[in-house]
Amino acid sequence: PGGIEKLTMMDMSVDMVNKWRELESATDDGPEMNFIVGDEEYLPMKENSQDLIMSCLGLHWTNDLPGAMIQCRLALKPDGLFLAAILGGETLKELRIACTIAQMEREGGISPRMSPLAQVRDAGNLLSRAGFALPGVDVDRYTVKYNSALELVEHLRAMAETNALFQRSHILKRDTALATAAIYQSMFGLEDGTIPATFQVIYMTGWKEHSSQQKPKRRGSATVSFGDIRKQFGSNQD
């Protein structure tokens, strides 16, 4: 009822944390702020200490995603809420296809140019595996237009969202890059000359267990069948 009294913000980047500190010091209103330089895989928080943990488009960088989510659950108080948004496997599907074809044509093989991402079907299992109660998953898909594939790649580099895999080719050959751009434009180019880039965002919610939460019914305890429901409400299908 009284709102948020204390807020902790964490990032692996010292520069980003310092920027947050500068922005916070410029304003006097809002909750008490605490800033931490830390890693989601080694969460620097005590068990049962947080009411809410939010992660916005950062967990796809972790090597052990289930382990990081387990640490989030442990840090939550009972009935605490975990909210996360991660990039899903459909993200940049156009670029993946174009780059794969270009590498096969120019180099006779492929090397991953983008980090692996979780699939929607895995999100619920990840929440359950991490021990969260009442898991929920939702998905949004965004399409962003760029003038060319090369402009898109420069945008990704500026976002520091290029491939993080150790076992990868560190150099994208010039002819392969140009072929990727040409294939991208040929396969996915729009009438206005731009190219679309898909970004899929998966939203995950889960609660730390508490006695006050709803509990699922025992399997086989249902007293009404789907057939009975169909008869009661009727069917619009012939």
Rank of each mutant, 00 (worst) to 15 (best):
F166G: 13
A102H: 00
L150G: 02
V224N: 03
H155R: 15
T180L: 04
R106M: 14
V17Q: 05
E24K: 15
N147R: 09
E191V: 06
A26W: 08
H155T: 14
V37A: 07
G89S: 15
D138S: 13
N34P: 00
L126P: 01
A98N: 06
Q214V: 06
M104C: 08
H60W: 01
R21T: 15
L172T: 15
I4N: 04
T162I: 13
A197N: 05
K145P: 06
P135K: 05
D64H: 01
P78F: 00
T8A: 11
E151V: 09
A177R: 14
L87V: 08
R106G: 06
F82P: 02
T198D: 03
W61K: 05
T62F: 04
R113K: 07
D122G: 11
P1H: 10
S128E: 15
H170L: 12
L117S: 04
L87G: 03
Q237S: 12
F199I: 13
W61V: 00
S55F: 00
V120D: 13
S111R: 08
G89I: 01
A158P: 02
E90G: 00
G2A: 12
S186G: 07
I202W: 05
G80N: 07
H170P: 11
M12Q: 15
T143R: 14
N147G: 15
V139Y: 00
P135Q: 00
D175Y: 11
R129K: 12
N63S: 06
L23P: 02
N63K: 13
L152M: 12
G109E: 12
P1F: 10
M9E: 10
I110V: 14
M204N: 01
E151Q: 15
A26L: 11
A102Y: 06
P1I: 13
M16N: 10
Q232I: 07
M12Y: 13
H155G: 06
E151H: 11
E32D: 11
G124K: 13
I110R: 10
E105W: 01
T176M: 09
T143M: 14
I101T: 11
K93C: 12
M9R: 13
E161W: 08
K145L: 10
K208F: 02
S225F: 03
E107S: 02
I70W: 05
S186P: 05
M45G: 00
G2K: 14
V14A: 13
H210G: 02
Y184G: 03
G234T: 03
S169M: 12
F82K: 03
Q185M: 08
M104F: 07
F35T: 04
D29S: 09
D175N: 12
G193P: 04
V17M: 05
V224I: 13
C56L: 10
T198N: 08
I53T: 02
K217F: 14
G124V: 01
Y203D: 11
